[in-house]
Design a protein around this nucleic acid. Structure first.
Lengths: 337, 337
DNA sequence: GCATATCATGTTACGCGTACCATAATAGCA
DNA sequence: TGCTATTATGGTACGCGTAACATGATATGC
């Protein structure tokens, strides 16, 4: 592999002169510049960023740590991140934790060793230790989507409690009284928030606490399926609608209902938080509370870049993005009284 | 940021001794080891990989350059890559080119500057120049999914020509005579292969060349929609089935047909290459020729790691993975004669 | 004609971890 | 007892690009 010294030798100049020619960082005569460029071409020289980073103490790289790369929601967030990062000459490293704390820990260690300039993190759990570790190393970090207790840190998230509230209220307004909630893990703040939004909606509708029907699972199609199964067994005669805590849970539940010949929305109405992107759905079907994934990625990255470029004095922020309800077929018509 | 020298000073030893204690690379007495570990803990020392990489001339990083991060097919390939890479202590950098040659060029430059150890590339076009550039830098590269002419390089791909042949033949066996092909860009080998498979099937069925109905677009839902629209305009009365070159095209076509009240499969049957993952579909509907995305990722990574670890003498390989046809509702029943 | 600004290039050293070589103490063995 | 092997630790230099400082040449200003 050729180095800047090889180029310098061939061009008959000092290495620093080559460096200046490449980076336009100082005066270089036209003649020298031409000779240097010729030498670079001839040798196929590509500068070694490792040397640059070691010296400059910055890698121009942001890390993106998400929990599920197969969920279109996260890939869209990633797009937003990439757009803003690229526009600011930063590259991104994408890491997928599969909601595993162990994997997250491993990735964070790796990222800190590589001296990435900042981290966009979707925490796999509500354990503050990993975030404290990052902060101890003075590496800027912005959480996305989920809060974590006991740590002062920037967060960009959606008003997911409100989202769950909106779609639950929508079901109530259609006349449903027995509404199940198929939730995600309770170690994740968004899941807790969505349960809370569901609860608040029931409370505001004057329903007693006993009206709550909450099932706890993961943010996956598999547990969506299982929870729907449990739901049918437990309260087959009564439940007329369900709130899914995310898109995968909704799909899993839908699969089970379809297998059991339970009609949606005639027998059981479904609403969910998180939409599916148009490229993956033939006809949008679910009534959803959508969040702008792209916007989440963009805002989080902008905030992170502010921190990276030294704005460490301003206190930690919590940016809460609005949600929007889109009413579609899955929630059905108004029930006859 | 603390360095190995800080740790050494605190532990009262030489930096190299700390290095040895960390890496277990040489003799270190128990007493010293304990003191070093205490110092590391106290200072929260995390080794700087940049120094290590600069010295060892390897970054333990593989680059993954894919063309569409929102397509589940590629995220699944990425999973396979990550599995194998991780098992071999390699990290991955994921780059998304959006099928753009420019973006690809930019990413490759960045990756080469970072001295990543190898590249898994889904080429955005059939231009051999970028691959030649990589090879000139002696960086191992394995192409995935797509071939590129005029360059000697390892490739792992599916037998996609056969896939298109199988599903087209399936349509023919159901009695269809007028079958359209909604293809991808002709600058991509898989797209060409799929058209060829379609053609071979028609030929083998004894149909004349005039029976071919080929529409060229992109691998996107948008152009799938547009091509289906063109198809209806052009041959509304005759075409009874269509072959989509990938899953997104199939979805786009399906959307158009559904809007135009054209029933699938009763009026027009649809088959496609590339399945959608179960987590994203409520009921699998499309008859497909599937390839194992996970397997593609794994095999490509294994091959790349072989090259990275010095197996450069064996000639370039082309690994062709088998495809499998899964018959579902979208292709419909046998036509009455 | 001399001081100062501008232009052009070079030397040295640094960032951080470790390969290589050197040193020294102890242990094992003939 | 003398000699080699094992254990333990350190010094120096290197990988690669560039910051900081230095030097010299030419141009500008008075």
């Amino acid at each position: 592999m050729t180095t800047i010294r090889d180029v310098a030798k061939l061009a008959g100049v000092a290495p620093i002169t080559v460096s200046r020619a490449i980076n336009n960082s100082d005066y270089v005569s036209i003649g020298t510049r031409v000779r240097v460029e010729k030498a670079i071409d001839e040798l196929g020289y590509i500068p070694n960023e490792l040397g640059v980073s070691l010296r400059s103490k910055q890698t121009m790289t942001l890390a993106v740590v998400i929990t599920d790369i197969t969920n279109p929601f996260w890939t869209t967030v990633t797009r937003g991140i990439e757009d803003v990062a690229q526009a600011n000459n930063y590259s991104t490293i994408l890491c997928n934790t599969d909601e595993s704390e162990d994997k997250q820990e491993q990735y964070l260690q790796m990222l800190l060793r590589r001296r990435i300039d900042g981290i966009l993190l979707v925490p796999a759990s509500n354990n503050p230790a990993p975030i404290k570790l990052i902060k101890k190393q003075n590496v800027p970090v912005v959480l996305m989507d989920r809060q974590v207790p006991d740590v002062d840190v920037d967060v960009v998230r959606s008003d997911t409690e409100e989202g769950a509230y909106l779609i639950t209220t929508h079901l109530l307004s259609l006349g449903h009284q027995e509404i199940a909630m198929l939730a995600g893990p309770q170690s994740v703040s968004t899941s807790v928030d969505r349960v809370n939004g569901y609860r608040r909606a029931l409370r505001d509708a004057g329903l007693p606490k006993s009206a709550e029907n909450i099932f706890l699972g993961e943010f996956t199609q598999e547990t969506g399926y299982t929870m729907a199964e449990l739901m049918l067994v437990k309260d087959s005669s009564r439940i007329t609608a369900l709130v899914a805590a995310n898109n995968f849970i909704a799909i899993g539940a839908m699969q089970l209902l379809s297998e059991k010949k339970v009609r949606v929305p005639e027998d059981v109405a479904i609403v969910t938080v998180d939409d599916l992107p148009p490229a993956l759905t033939i006809t949008p079907f679910f009534t959803v509370a959508t969040q702008s994934a792209l916007e989440m990625g963009k805002q989080a990255t902008q905030l992170l870049l502010d921190r990276v470029s030294g704005k460490t004095d301003i206190p930690c922020q919590e940016i809460i993005l609005p949600v929007e309800m889109i009413i579609r077929a899955s929630s059905g018509e108004k029930l006859s009284p």
